[in-house]
Design a protein around this nucleic acid. Structure first.
Lengths: 162, 162
DNA sequence: GGCACATAATTGACATGTCAACCAGATGGG
DNA sequence: CCCATCTGGTTGACATGTCAATTATGTGCC
């Protein structure tokens, strides 16, 4: 057993047990993400990024959205989105149209190919989420996990604004 | 309120509420990782990858470790590790020595520069973990989070082995 | 010894992410 | 009208991650 240092006892640093939980938490979410990513990849040839973009577009009015709006919606910065859209456009999953009301702007449009790929991906993906996340937990655990996520998010926001 | 589809009622797919929790969970862990990463970066000029490697090496006997051992320890595949070590070696954070007992092998050695960088990084990083994760949660929530992580991990392992 | 096979690690090609610099079109004040 | 400034979006450079192929060495078996 490792003894906590004096600093840790004064609670400036996590205790050994807190640190163990942290590492467990972060590694587990990493592993979960990685399994879901590889399933999505092998079942639909889509990356999680592709999936987010296609999901947002397929829920958008007319299956089209201004680029910055899309970025805000999925919480990406514009540069990341622009690079990703470039790759998706090459695969014909989306198209960039000029924007009628702002000559600088771009409208990102879901193509039939993109819509088709998204529809093929969605059920298997949701099933995987169910199998690997929802079904693994008791209803209580699931509810607490939701609360924990909300709490962490609120805490993050407040510490960012300071 | 969206009504769940018949499929969802038959519990093949997550319900709307379950899906909300899932998205909240995954986005929150993403946000948390990203904030911690940028703090680590700005305080120590180290990436999370650098930190993992340096942590493992600094805990290793003689501050050195065989490459595959290191990879297994931090759960990376060897290719990823090899690329990363190449970048770290350029920055003199680690060194690759030939292995005395296996001519194919490499011993990864912590350099003084690497040790110094790690020591500068560790306290601020742990403080950030405490501030952004541990302190945000009640002791109960923290304990449950640990259990959830363990449960998810076990479930993942069992579904991978099938 | 020598060959089939396993193992350690690296490499190359490519997808993804971040950051800062950039370009062009809007916009508001003089 | 004109310039300063803001905004929408792209680009380039580079860090990181994944996958498959490659190189070199060890190991067991005849």
């Amino acid at each position: 057993m490792t003894r906590d240092t004096p600093q840790q006892r004064r609670r400036q640093l996590p205790t050994t047990e807190e640190l163990r939980i942290w590492r467990d938490f972060i590694e587990t979410t990493e592993a979960l993400r990685s399994v879901l990513t590889s399933r999505l990849q092998s079942e639909s040839a889509l990356s999680p990024g592709d999936y987010s973009v296609l999901l947002a577009l397929s829920e958008a009015r007319d299956e089209r959205m201004r680029s910055s709006e899309l970025a805000a919606h999925i919480r990406w910065d514009r540069s990341r989105l622009s690079h990703h859209l470039g790759r998706m456009e090459k695969r014909a999953l989306i198209r960039r149209d000029d924007c009628a009301t702002d000559n600088r702007g771009a409208e990102i449009v879901l193509t039939p190919t993109g819509a088709e790929a998204f529809h093929r991906a969605t059920v298997p993906h949701l099933r995987a989420v169910r199998e690997l996340f929802v079904d693994a937990l008791t209803p209580d655990q699931l509810a607490t996990t939701g609360e924990v996520a909300a709490t962490l998010r609120a805490h993050l926001r407040s510490s960012r604004d300071m």
